[in-house]
Computed example of a mutant assay.
Amino acid sequence: MKRFLLACLLLAVTITAPAFAEGQFKVLVVAIPNRYHHDYTVVARPQFERMAQRHGFDMDWAWSNRPFDADLSGYAAIVLLNTAGGDLETTQRKALEAYVRGGGGVVAVHRAMVFDQPGHWPWFEKLVGRAFIIHPIVQTATVRVEDPAFPATFGLPARWIWTDEWYEFGPPLVDGLRTVLSVDERSYDPTRIWPGQVSRGMGAEHPVAWYHHYDGGRVFATALGHTPALYDDALYLEHLYGGLWWAATGKGIEPEPAQEHRARE
């Protein structure tokens, strides 16, 4: 009898164990090294692996664009970690478009916001939300939390000292962009740039992170993350995971009044 009960117990553990091993959602991180962004990958991958363990989600990591040749529907979000739209081939671009239209989430980090060939893929430019123009030399500046109700800011102070490349952008390419973080240009020199280049800054409103709904999916974009050492910073990792969590699940923000009214109906 004891052996029978033990066998039943082992069978129950065998059956139920996979349910506990599965994460709450699955994420694809695509980190394609390039001329100016390659050292970060060595630091970023183990940090993302720890993030997945800490927050209980599954993760696939890719150094190339090959995952876009396969089925993407199993991923709740795709993180373009310094991976730009120009890194994808034509058929792979169509795959990403279909994924987003199916409700998938996208997290665009730093170089992912740079269009290698502006105008060649308008859909992706609108996905990111703003067009990159230029950036000055890396400097320390003050970052301001503009939306304390968005998960990517939950772990951040209202004003945050940060050192990075301060990307400058054009006006919004789509309606509905919601600024999450901005940088105070009075705290650094926007004109400090390499000889032969000109950077003037964006003025009083200089967003560096935002989110929006686009073409059926959710998009979180952050310009922060140039220097490899930044991926060892706990605040930055909280910022990334907050945006990733929302992109993957849509959770963490209060519904708009109109959306809440429709839900009650």
Rank of each mutant, 00 (worst) to 15 (best):
K2L: 10
L6K: 10
A7P: 04
L11M: 08
L11F: 03
A12G: 03
V13E: 11
A17V: 06
A17K: 03
P18F: 05
Q24H: 04
F25G: 08
K26E: 04
V27W: 12
H38M: 07
Y40M: 12
Y40H: 13
V42E: 15
A44K: 11
F48W: 15
F48Y: 15
E49M: 10
R50Q: 12
A52P: 11
Q53T: 11
H55M: 15
G56N: 07
M59D: 04
M59C: 12
M59S: 08
D60F: 04
W61D: 11
A62W: 15
A62N: 10
W63D: 12
S64E: 13
P67L: 13
F68W: 06
D71N: 09
L72H: 14
L72V: 05
Y75P: 11
L80C: 08
L80D: 08
L81P: 04
N82Y: 01
T83L: 07
T83P: 13
T83N: 07
A84D: 08
D87R: 13
E89A: 14
E89Y: 12
E89F: 08
T90K: 15
T90A: 14
T91K: 15
Q92H: 13
L96A: 14
E97G: 02
A98G: 12
A98W: 00
A98I: 03
Y99I: 06
V100F: 05
R101W: 02
G105W: 04
V106Q: 09
V107G: 14
V107A: 05
R111G: 02
R111V: 01
M113V: 08
D116W: 04
W123V: 09
E125G: 09
E125Y: 13
V128T: 08
V128R: 05
I134A: 02
P136T: 06
P136E: 06
Q139I: 01
Q139L: 01
T140Y: 01
T142A: 14
T142Y: 10
V143S: 06
V143I: 14
P148I: 03
P151D: 03
T153Q: 07
T153L: 07
L156Y: 06
P157V: 02
A158F: 02
A158S: 12
D164T: 01
W166H: 03
L173Q: 05
D175M: 02
R178N: 13
T179N: 12
V180P: 09
V180R: 13
V180Y: 06
V183Q: 04
E185V: 09
S187Q: 11
P190G: 01
T191E: 02
T191G: 00
W194N: 06
W194V: 08
G196W: 05
Q197H: 15
S199M: 07
S199G: 15
R200G: 06
M202K: 00
E205T: 00
E205M: 01
W210S: 09
Y211S: 13
H213I: 03
D215W: 08
V219P: 12
V219F: 14
L224Q: 05
L224R: 01
H226Y: 01
P228E: 04
P228L: 13
L230Y: 05
Y231I: 02
Y231S: 00
A234T: 14
L235Y: 06
L235R: 14
L235S: 14
Y236E: 02
G242N: 09
G243E: 12
W245H: 15
W245T: 02
W246L: 03
G250Q: 06
K251F: 10
G252Q: 09
P255S: 06
E256F: 01
P257S: 09
A258I: 07
A258V: 08
Q259I: 10
